[in-house]
């Protein structure tokens, strides 16, 4: 006799002792199980009268997760294990992309990716600290400052590490965190904002660029130990860069200038972040007087 797969499955189910059909006749009460006082036979349990169970905790999946491709094939959805780390990391790489998409030869960090991530991290109860990792060649002033302002205004402990490079607009992003690290070999270029795209007339343009520059300088001096005169001096120094005016600060130089707090790598940064998280949690535990 021919069965289609579905029919055979149903028949096998019917044969199993604890099968109750979902469609069709009402289930007969099973004599082996004690009657449930809260439900009368033939009635669905009322969710309102059921005792409240513990709220669902974050699902932790152990063992081998199903391959994404397999689960898409079978169920139409990927099975993503939801193991959330209490430290989440945000990476700023390549060019910081602003209101215009850059041509495809650029590796970019887009603000439409970073900004919602930061909102998510601020809101999440499981996330206790944020690690910001930078290897950037700068980019759009507006987008860079937007990211910096968001990181600076977060209530959770934040730590940044500059690896490789944190140039130009990477500077404000690096100092926007509560504590900042720079790798020994990493470099930061500080230089004036140059002109592109916007040509109104010489005096107006200079004034506009000057204002843009003041935004960057203002942010950096507010969020790090560096003084405004020192930062301006580094920005306009001649003879340090071959083709331009400005300065390259490598590792310890950035710390000495007061831009970055400490020289260190991933280990130190995570240790510092953990320490700040502990402090933050302890403060929250003290009752108000």
């Amino acid at each position: 006799m021919y069965y289609d797969n579905n029919q055979r499955f149903k028949n096998e189910q019917r044969r199993s002792p604890d099968y109750t059909p979902t469609v069709g006749p009402m289930p007969r009460p099973n004599p082996n199980t004690p009657p449930n006082p809260s439900t009368t036979p033939g009635q669905m349990p009322n969710p309102m009268t059921q005792p409240r169970t513990e709220p669902n905790k974050g699902k932790r999946v152990t063992g081998k997760p199903k391959g994404m491709i397999d689960s898409i094939k079978e169920l139409g959805t990927p099975d993503v294990p939801e193991t959330k780390s209490n430290i989440q990391c945000v990476t700023i790489i390549g060019q910081v992309e602003g209101h215009l998409s850059l041509p495809p030869q650029n590796k970019t960090t887009k603000y439409e990716h970073i900004i919602p991530q930061l909102v998510g991290l601020e809101q999440s109860n499981e996330v206790e600290g944020v690690l910001l990792i930078l290897n950037t060649v700068g980019g759009d002033v507006e987008a860079g400052l937007a990211i910096s302002e968001m990181v600076a205004s977060m209530s959770k402990p934040t730590v940044s590490i500059v690896l490789g490079g944190g140039h130009s607009i990477g500077g404000p992003i690096a100092v926007s965190t509560d504590y900042s690290f720079i790798a020994e070999t990493a470099s930061m270029t500080i230089h004036p904002i140059r002109l592109n795209g916007l040509v109104v007339g010489v005096p107006q343009t200079y004034e506009y660029l000057d204002k843009m520059q003041d935004r960057v300088i203002g942010f950096v001096t507010q969020h790090s130990r560096i003084k405004e005169d020192k930062f301006r001096e580094l920005m306009f120094r001649t003879g340090d860069l071959a083709r331009d005016i400005g300065t390259v600060l490598i590792g310890d130089d950035a710390v000495k200038a007061g831009l970055i707090d400490e020289v260190g790598g991933l280990g130190k940064a995570v240790q510092k972040l953990r320490q700040m998280i502990d402090q933050n949690n302890n403060q929250r535990g003290v009752p108000l007087q």
Binding site: Q95, G98, H99, L100, L102, P103, P104, Q105, N106, V137, G138, G139, D140, V141, E142, G144, H167, S168, I169, T189, H191, I193, R194, N196, G197, L198, L209, M212, V216, D244, G246
Partner: peptide
Amino acid sequence: MILYTPMQLELVLDGM
């Protein structure tokens, strides 16, 4: 858009 980058702008904006 004001780009603040040490990279050459011709390189960044090539193909724009």
